[in-house]
Amino acid sequence: MSEPNPPRVRLATTSLAGCFGCHMSFLDIDEKLFPLLERVEFDRSPLTDIKNCGPCDVGLIEGGVCNAENVHVLREFRANCKVLIALGACAITGGLPAQRNHLDLGLCLQEVYLTEPSLARGGIPNDPELPLPLDKVYPLHEIVHIDYFIPGCPPSAEAIWKVLSDLLAGHTPYLAEPLIRYD
């Protein structure tokens, strides 16, 4: 009699203020996707198009937090995922979008929508459908507790695979220097 298959690990992924580059890097694990898919099933993710996250074992989030919707999504992940991982530079530091942090948001909106000629007649968008931008772009760990961080812009496929396979094997994830060295 064979051992019953262990239950699959439920994995959710999303991109907040990110460029999906980290997701592309995730897909770069290439043929390892097959063994991965034997062990995990995807919940909310761009790969499944599930809109809301249910109870999960692991959540992977790329991108920082730039607006109210990002906050809601991040909170949803935190509430549902046992382990939440910040994936890539933007999730860890705010990254490229955080370059706006030294500008005043009000002045920014004013310049783009009111005083510059191109969009000046449009007015500042105020449709309730649109999420309001936060005053700054925040890294994930300043909004919710984050369990692990995978640095890189984007992190290499090997680094992402290492962390996921560690978790699947029940190890505390560890990235040795070659995997977090960028020069």
Binding site: A68, L105, P125, P128, L132, L134, D135
Partner: peptide
């Protein structure tokens, strides 16, 4: 942290 955007857009709906 949403206050500057509320001020600029004039929004005060629940989603704001």
């Amino acid at each position: 942290a949403l206050a500057p955007a509320r001020r600029m857009t004039g929004r005060d709906d629940p989603a704001a």
